[in-house]
Structures are given as structure tokens and as C-alpha cells.
Design a protein around this nucleic acid. Structure first.
Lengths: 400, 400
DNA sequence: TTGTATGCGTTATCAC
DNA sequence: GTGATAACGCATACAA
């Protein structure tokens, strides 16, 4: 697809060694005049204007030039060029400078394919996410992208190879696909309710893989997550301090172990802070705005009519749910935070778009990204679980 | 980083040809017994239990096996394997079947690095976006991801290489970085107000690049965009049909040419449908919820006090702005859509989270992705501009 | 330290 | 068609 670069004097056609241009070996120990097969720095243009003078100053070209060209220009061997540019050579003498100058001048950058083929390092991190519109995934992507590079010729340019899939099968496929690409490591955000233990355990011994969020932990695979128990404690304590006496919890899908665990934490913390909750209030369900809306209406209309007073606060497993709650309360004329306080989870961009703004638990995205990369750097077969402390971002939906 | 695979009988260490295992050439024309240097299908484990019987059935291994192994197993040459698996061979005879079976059995998949090095095709598309939390970018990512692959040994597995950057310099850097990776093509979503004409024109002759959205068009670079004139016409016509007589337009940043152009289109369409607008209503500004909120308050409080009646509809350059408008109207007790109708742009997930839901212009994401990929497939140096028709998604904020 | 030579796993070319 | 083999561009073991 890319325009093929003319290489050496041979034009790819003459593969026979006898017909190809003779390779002139370096004059032994001469140290000065060096001759190598070298790609022309500026290949002849197909449509060269016949009238153009031959000595015309060449415009800056980004024609891919190879390490051979740089070596020739710097009057050293390709090995030295490789060593200088990859930092395997400490001294910063005249040679190093010459090499760097030549590389810059030729606009040289290493061929990743060749480099990867030879060294098995691709400078590429795989990222598997359920969807780019998923808040956690999006934030993670932004956090993973390295902050503006200091311009450098051959910078350690790590890049993200993306795999998007929201189902068990798709995610497993993306994973496999990334492994086949020999990425240096994989970060995976499991879709809601998806269990990837099996493929993860299968690939982990060979490729460093870090799971971010989700549950299904296995001690054979690495994970970075947040301390959800602490998060729940922060929430409940915060609500208690605001004078709240009762709260409901709108959990995620009941099928997932994660939801059940969070629900248990909710109960524990409620008891610890002497708040009350009612079985009727708390329910599992899908993570969506509409679900939050429905559950709230039900709580404030049907159940209230049945004699169950609604809670003074609603804690939601995700901001989307909380958003639905806010909308429902608004339509019913229930004031937030005076009558009911609402707390969300994940601090999505949505949280600052409500009126009042939504108090939410913010995972430390930057830290998560950093830790994930660190675990990958440790190499394969060294599983570790890292738990980070989230932050409760207090906004208008719980105070004021 | 990846565990190095033991290859052939040589262990990478003995580079001297005399000490390495002799390479036994294929017996000429024998056609049956074939001998080649072949990597052992199941390498000896480092920590092999001494008590384990040698004939123990081997567990399924995903040790990377190379084309050599497949060739040996299928009793053909590596050239044939390559041809069969890459579809360069039409017949589906016994040989093809043997090759495929062997590949499957060995869990073989091509080494992308080697393949890319040799053929200059990387099966990789670069994607440069301002941020993953940007709605358009996120939707585009999801649309670009191929729908669940039909499982196949050596599937045409195109992947996305991501570059995130919200500033002129960062985006240009990501672009350059992707070009250096020899991606097959690049799709770029310019950040708001960023002009990438120069780098785009620089790289376009060598790598197919498609710009999605934004303005700064150059006839030397490819673009896929939506017909914003048509979008504006749809909006205004829809509003007119609802009996609206006056409308305001909340544009994007004034510095960008795009904003000015959209503003001009707004005026044109308003005139065409005989609706009125007031200079005081229409303003440029940042794309944010808060901005929409501010502008609306100003229009309905200060300007109204100054004797300027507010409009019957507000058209926003983005859903974020529209969201702020909705919130402001709600706090002022202005009913939507009875008193004022609101229209957004981009149909972000936000649009369905408001009460009532937001009418918005939906770019045809799938079509955009498809067209972008098609243009890339055309190859470099064939610039084209594709304009697609958006869809007006009518919701509660304008009817009912 | 520097240069030479080798091989990484493929695909493309050539001879058959 | 198939098989042998030469690059692709780089990193590194080894010799100097």
C-alpha cells in the first residue's frame, strides 16, 4: 500500500546475486572512504520535469530512508547507527553526534516491522474495551496516551492497538488477535458480565495482560482495580454526615458477581453507619438511564402508595443510572439534594451536566493507566493485583 | 518482552554456519520424504518434571509456530503455505486442505512483523482523534471496528492503531508517528479549531489519509464529512413546520472557519423559510454545557429585560451546548418544547438522557467509517471528498 | 568501542 | 501451478 521505497541500486527485480550490483565491502581499516550499497537519498521522480536543472536544491523529503543510508552519511557502520539511536551506546562523542545529525537530515525513523521481527519488541500496547462510548474505557484511553512527546528522532514511541468488542466472544477474539500481533502487553476492560478468565489464563504466561476493573479475578492474571469497599464507605459516611438516615442502592446486573459483591459492601457500610435500607428499594438491573428512571418512579409512586416511604438517598452503581434517577425526581418535583440525595459511580462526563451536578466516585484513571503499564513492564508470568483508592467527588446532588 | 520461541534446532546463540545444525536440502524430486529445519512443535519445558513419562500426551500449545512448521506438517514448501493462506492460490485441492489443516493444528498465525517487513502491508489503520471522550471520535471507533469476525485461521485482521491528541502539535505528532509505523492508511478527526492542512498535504502523497469532519479542506487530501447545509435545512424546515417563527443559533468557536460557515448556512436557511433571528441571540463560543447555560440565561433574562423577546427555538452546534440550554430553561420554568424548542448536533449519547429527549442531527457513523476505509483502500495520492447526508433524529425537544 | 555477518519469518521472484 | 531462495531492515553475537 505504501509507496515502495527504492533500495540500494537494485530495484527489487534483480534478485540474482550475479546480476545485482556488486556489493563493495568496506575497505579494511581504511577508516575514511566507505562504500556501501545505499539507497539514494532522493529517488528520481517519475515525473521529473526535463527542464529542471540537475543541481536544483532538493526539497525536504520524507522518503523512507533506511539505517543503511544513515550509516553511509555518518560514515559509520549500521551497527553503530543502531546502537546510537537505540541508546545502547552511552558516550556522546563525535560519532554519536554525526549519526544523530545524519538521521535527522534524512528524516530517518526505524522500521517498526523490521525492529519487531528482530527483537520481539513492538512498542505497542494492546487495549481491549467493550466500546469507545463506555466512559471508563474512554477515560482510560486518554490516560494511556503519553503526554506530548518531547520531540526526539527515535523516541520510545509506544502506541495503542485497539480492539473493541462488547461480548464474550468478541473480546476473546480481540485478545487473541492482539496476541498474534506480538504486542508488548495487553490491557483489557471486560464488558459488563463477561468472564474472560479462560482466555486470560491461556495467554498470560506468554504476554503480559492486565485486566482493569471487572471482577472474575484469578491469581494467575494481573489486575488493576479500585477499592470498592472503600468507595462504598466514603459514600455512606458522606451521606451519614449530611444527616441522611436511609438509602437505596441501585446495583448493576444481577448475574454478575461484581454486582452482588458491591451490594454486600453497601449493606455492610450501611450497618456500620447505622443507616437503614429496605429490601423493596434495592434492585439489580441493567446500567442505563432508563433503568434509573423506572426504578425511581416505582419507588416514589407505587411503593410509596403501598406504604413504603422512599429513602433519603439513592446510591447508583453507575452515573447513567443516577442520571435517570435525577430526571425522574425532577419530573416528580422531588428536590435534589434537599429531599433526596443522589450518588453516582465512575464520574463520567455526564456527572457535570446535570442540575445540580452529580456527586460521584472517581476512579483514579491516571494512576490506573500508570499501574497497568508498570505491570506490563514487569513481563509475562508475574501476575499481580493492584488496588487503588478512588475519590469521592462531592457535588450539588448531595450537599447544599 | 514476549517469551522467545526456540526456533529450529539452533538456539539463536550459534550463529556460525559451521556449528549450526546442517540444513538438509529437500531431496530433489523425491516428492515424498521431505526434510527441513523445523521448529519443534512442542518445545521442551524448562521445568519439565523428571518423573513425567516422555510419551505423555501433550496439552494444546499456542507456542508460536512458524510457516516452516506448517510447511513440514503439510509436506509442502513454505512458498505454497504462504500462497494458500494468503489466498494467492485459487484452487481448493488436497494441497490447500492439507495446508489449512496443518495451520489449524499448529495454531499457526502469520507473524505480522515479518509480513509487514516483506510486503509493506501492515493490516493496520491509524486513527488520530482529539480525545476518546469526544462523542464523534468514540462513535467512529465503534463503527470502524469490524463486526465479529467469522473465525478463520488467517483472517484479514485489520486493526486500529490509535493516536490521541487535542492540540495542533500533538495531532501532527501522532500523525507522523503513525506514518512512521507504515500503517495502511490514516483516519484523522481534527480537534476543534485545529488546522492540519500542512502535515496532511505532506504525508498524503505517501500514505492514504482521510480527514473526518472539520473544515480546512484541501483538494490534495481526502475528506469524509456530512452535508451541513442539508442538516441546517432539515432543522429549519422541521422547526418551521412546527410553527416556529424565530430561532437562535449557538455556534462553535468563532476562530474556526467551520463555525462561520455553519452560521452562514443558518442565516440562509432561515431566510429561505421566512423565519426571523436577532443578532443579539446568536453567538459564538466554546462547545460546553456551561456555555449553553450561560447564553440561555442571558437571552432570557438580560436581553429580555432590554426589550428583546427571546426566540421560539434554539439551534446548537453541539449536543453539549443544547444540554446547557435545556438545563437553563428548566431552571427558569420555560417549558420544552411548548415554549421553546431545542435542537442539538451530533446525536451524542447525551441526547437521550434529557427530559424531554433532545432532537439532534445524527451523522451516519457507519457510512462515514465505511467511506473512510474505502478511500484508504484507493491508495495514496488519490484525494477525494465525500459528503454524506445526516439524519435529523426528532425527539421530544421539538415536538409533542 | 566498532564492524561484520547472521538470522528473525515472510513474501516475491525466478526456474522449473 | 510448485519449490528454492533472495531480500525486507534491523539487532546482536562475535571478532577485531
Amino acid at each position: 500500500m505504501t509507496t515502495k521505497k527504492p533500495t540500494a541500486t537494485t530495484q527489487r527485480k534483480p534478485a540474482r546475486p550475479d546480476t545485482a550490483t556488486a556489493i563493495v565491502p568496506t575497505a579494511k581499516r581504511s577508516g575514511t572512504a566507505r562504500t556501501q550499497t545505499v539507497a539514494p537519498a532522493v529517488p528520481v521522480s517519475d515525473s521529473a520535469s526535463p527542464a529542471a536543472p540537475a543541481s536544483q536544491p532538493q526539497p525536504p523529503q520524507q522518503q523512507p530512508s533506511s539505517i543503511t543510508n544513515v550509516a553511509a552519511k555518518a560514515n559509520v557502520s549500521i551497527a553503530t547507527v543502531s546502537r546510537v539511536l537505540s541508546g545502547k551506546r552511552t558516550k556522546d562523542d563525535d560519532i554519536a553526534r554525526r549519526v544523530r545529525a545524519a538521521a535527522e537530515e534524512l528524516n530517518y525513523s526505524v522500521n517498526y516491522a523490521a525492529s519487531a521481527l528482530r527483537s520481539d519488541v513492538t512498542n505497542t500496547i494492546g487495549l481491549v474495551i467493550p466500546s469507545a462510548t463506555d466512559s471508563l474505557s474512554a477515560r482510560l484511553i486518554d490516560a494511556l496516551e503519553p503526554p506530548a512527546d518531547h520531540k526526539s528522532t527515535a523516541t520510545q514511541n509506544r502506541q495503542l492497538l485497539l480492539g473493541v468488542g462488547g461480548e464474550q466472544r468478541t473480546q476473546a477474539q480481540r485478545l487473541e488477535s492482539l496476541v498474534a500481533r506480538n504486542v508488548d502487553g495487553i490491557i483489557i476492560v471486560p464488558a459488563d458480565g463477561v468472564d474472560l478468565t479462560q482466555p486470560l489464563e491461556r495467554f498470560s504466561p506468554h504476554t503480559p495482560i492486565v485486566q482493569v476493573g471487572g471482577r472474575q479475578r484469578s491469581f494467575r492474571t494481573s489486575m488493576v482495580g479500585i477499592d470498592e469497599n472503600a468507595a462504598m464507605e466514603m459514600i455512606v459516611e458522606h451521606l451519614a454526615r449530611q444527616g441522611v438516615r436511609s438509602a437505596a442502592y441501585f446495583a448493576g446486573k444481577e448475574v454478575s458477581f461484581e454486582s452482588a459483591e458491591m451490594f454486600a459492601m453497601f449493606h455492610t457500610q450501611m450497618r456500620a453507619h447505622r443507616l437503614v435500607t429496605d429490601t423493596a428499594w434495592n434492585r439489580f438491573g441493567e446500567v442505563s438511564v432508563e433503568r434509573g428512571y423506572r426504578c425511581t418512579r416505582r419507588m416514589f409512586v407505587e411503593e410509596r402508595a403501598a406504604g413504603i416511604e422512599p429513602p433519603q438517598a439513592v446510591i447508583c452503581a453507575d452515573d447513567m443510572i443516577a442520571l435517570g434517577v435525577m430526571v425522574a425526581l425532577q419530573t416528580m418535583g422531588v428536590r435534589v439534594p434537599q429531599d433526596v440525595r443522589v450518588v453516582g459511580f465512575n464520574d463520567s462526563p455526564l456527572a457535570t451536566t446535570t442540575m445540580p451536578q452529580l456527586t460521584s466516585v472517581r476512579p483514579p484513571f491516571d494512576q490506573i493507566a500508570q499501574e497497568a503499564l508498570r505491570l506490563i513492564g514487569l513481563g509475562a508470568g508475574r501476575p499481580a493485583h493492584v488496588t487503588l483508592l478512588p475519590q469521592l467527588v462531592v457535588r450539588g446532588s448531595t450537599v447544599g
